[in-house]
Design a protein around this nucleic acid. Structure first.
Lengths: 211, 211, 211, 211
DNA sequence: GATGAATGAGCCTTCATTCAT
DNA sequence: AATGAATGAAGGCTCATTCAT
């Protein structure tokens, strides 16, 4: 019986998580307005009303998806072990990590993008939105300070500036891949193009943080 | 009568342009899916059916808005006079121009963003999408080559890479302003924050292109 | 062409009025909550969305139906010619008129009933709800005053009291016909029962207003 | 254990009665169609499914609520002691009782009203709906007969007519309080207005039954 | 060229009810 | 006895688009 209860709980958690997963995919693909609750239900192989049962409405579902996305990124960041590198190299590792996180989780940047189109109305409803990105800020802040001590990172750089710069270079390339590929008549999604862009990003950041 | 015809033509051109303007605002604000044809008609103080009369449907209207947006940017770029600067400084002028163009035309980046969410399906329908960005590519290509000759720009940088880097730093900051402001608990829209970001962008690009 | 325009206007007015008629029937039959917009469209043989095109939403449609119901009653009251009767008899004529109006327009009392269940939220939104019943109040007030002069109506009766008494006796009987018929195991809808009730009402009012 | 069973039975009875109470409030407030099973469960602080467990469905729940409402009224009527009054005065006592019962149990008339909107479909399903109102009929019938003997009540009045007249005057005023208050621009709910209406009702009935 | 009228498809959401323990 | 999970049916409303003049 204990077993069964556990199983039930898992079933519920599983179904909720299936819905969240489906919603993440749908929202990332179509944006908030373009996403269809019906489509999410179909993707999750769940009854549509179950979505409302668990998540109340489309907006709250989106909020949950956003939170989960941030949570997942935070967890992966926590697994980073950057102490073994000198600070300046560790920062380049961050560039690397960010880029590959974006590549492996293309939904993350699209969700963020969609949320920004809605003027962050979902994030605004959260209790402590700052926590979403706390680890990220802590990591860069720590690296910068270490870099100053190690004298391998320029001193007048703020954590937010570094974060934004790192994110911007990868984010822009990926989020605008469709139009850029057309305008530059190159497939920016090809592996060689991706590799080359990573190289450029690191080159750029390295040059910038050099003391 | 000739007079009247001219007047009529102007009226027609005027009404079309009012619709385009209204559409640009609506699409930029709400995205393609969030935009409402009714709302565009209202903003333009035009009959809704007139929109269909002139622009066939929502998609073609969006395409026209996009084209106009690119055209406008091209025109402003054409007015740039960068020959009087050394190449490396001219590139920083480009950073400056790009940033201020984004600031003065916030709709430009939002339209691009929306188009990317739709996987550039509107651009794909164009006859010569490359032309949209031709001048921009020509300018940076020219500057890079001049920089190599003047020996004040590093030689292994491609025009596309430079373009993307310059655009990325400004674009990311502005397009994600809502969520970033929440997460970093600072108003990124304040003048001082904007100025500071411009400084960082220039610093970053300058460091990167230095030979 | 003038003809055609007139015809068109009539067509539109006709369709709107068909919708209003259908709505009145549906609302009266099922109450506001029980009424279905789909059903109204069907009754009116109109496209459902046309209802929204003309009347915005279910609530505003109900408001319009209510207004029309009051308007119609007002018009019929205006056609009453009570001057030829002594005041006390004229008041009994009012009982008669009210009763027959209720009988011929069973929807009127049901609409009012439904509106009261909703705490008059539709009437509250009107600009001058008092006007709805103005003529009715004027008529009774006039009759009472004349009755005092003619000395055939008791003097300490207010217009509102008379109105309410007259309405109450007929309204209660008709609105509760279903349950009353069951409880008293008689068909209160039979002609003889209706006639008898009219007699009782007149008897009651006559006794009450006697000086 | 016996104790526990008793306790449990009470608990069950209590929970059923809490549900009935909640349902009565909800049905009275919103009408049958406007009422929500969820809302009833919430008001009763009971699991929604429990409602179905005890009462099968919304209709049967409503039926039970109606029955309870009638039962309660019957019980209060049984407590009336009208023998000490002359018949004509006793009838005025009935007017008084009815009015105060309506005032203290506003749900009663609203439930009846809702049931009539549904064409008494719940009452129709009862085994002996006549019993619901038996005592009321018996009382008035008795009073009328006594009044004839005492020669203080007119002879050609039927019990049903008296009942309806008494109920109508109070019922109409209260059930239509919202719209009447708006149309007559007076708060009919004020104590003075209520008192005045009771006076009018008694005046009217007294005049009517006078031999 | 211009416009009010009209519509089909679909969207988010609600609600009474049932399932499964 | 009691409850959380789940669902089919529908309901009000929206929206891009077309009709008809």
């Amino acid at each position: 019986m204990a077993n069964r209860m556990v199983k039930d709980k898992n079933d519920v958690a599983d179904k909720q998580s299936r819905i969240l997963q489906a919603a993440r995919a749908e929202f990332a693909e179509k944006g908030f307005d373009g996403a269809r609750v019906d489509s999410i239900a179909e993707r999750a192989q769940a009854n549509k009303q179950l979505i409302y049962y668990y998540f109340v409405n489309k907006d709250q579902l989106f909020t949950r998806v956003l939170e989960e996305a941030y949570r997942d990124k935070r967890q992966q960041e926590a697994a980073l072990d950057l102490d073994r590198f000198p600070a300046n190299e560790a920062i380049l590792q961050l560039v690397d990590f960010t880029w590959h996180y974006y590549l492996k989780n293309p939904e993350f940047i699209r969700l963020l993008n969609s949320e920004n189109q809605l003027k962050a109305r979902h994030l605004q409803g959260l209790d402590s939105p700052v926590e979403l990105n706390r680890s990220w800020i802590d990591i860069t802040q720590g690296l910068l300070e270490r870099g100053w001590r190690e004298n391998n990172v320029r001193s007048n750089i703020a954590a937010m500036q570094l974060n934004i710069t790192i994110s911007a270079l990868g984010f822009f390339y990926l989020i605008n891949q469709s139009t850029l590929s057309i305008i530059y008549q190159t497939d920016l999604g090809e592996q060689s193009a991706l590799d080359e862009h990573l190289r450029v990003m690191k080159e750029c950041v390295a040059a910038w943080i050099r003391p």
